[in-house]
């Protein structure tokens, strides 16, 4: 059916776009120039990872990718918050 092939095509295209987005974030993460740029890029990078896994979930019709996304959201938030705190004072845990 026409609509179904559109869905297959657009999910694949979306995945490629998100991988490209992750590449952009990775570029900024490697280039910097300062530490805060790298942390900001890391934040964008894990959000892209979450979106990529969500589209994987749609592609495979597997509902359990949701759990992986939730874990990435939790760990990513704690990681960026700790890194930002570290940049502020030089000590991550206070």
């Amino acid at each position: 059916m026409m609509a179904h092939s559109i869905l297959i095509w657009s999910v694949a295209t979306a995945e490629m776009m998100i991988v490209l987005a992750m590449a952009c974030a990775a570029y900024r993460m490697l280039k910097g120039p300062r530490a805060q740029d790298r942390v900001l890029a890391l934040d964008a990078f894990y959000v892209c990872g979450m979106i990529l896994i969500l589209t994987f979930g749609i592609e495979t019709s597997d509902i359990f990718y949701f759990e992986a996304v939730l874990v990435i959201a939790l760990v990513g938030f704690v990681a960026t918050a700790a890194l930002a705190k570290f940049l502020m004072r030089g000590e991550p845990i206070e």
Partner: peptide
């Protein structure tokens, strides 16, 4: 068919916005 079309549009839109965001980065 309508579910397939709406899902396609939403997924493409979301991916495009994310890509624009990181291009801005």
């Amino acid at each position: 068919a309508w579910v397939a079309i709406v899902t396609s549009i939403l997924v493409l839109l979301g991916a495009a916005l994310t890509l624009i965001g990181t291009i801005g980065l």
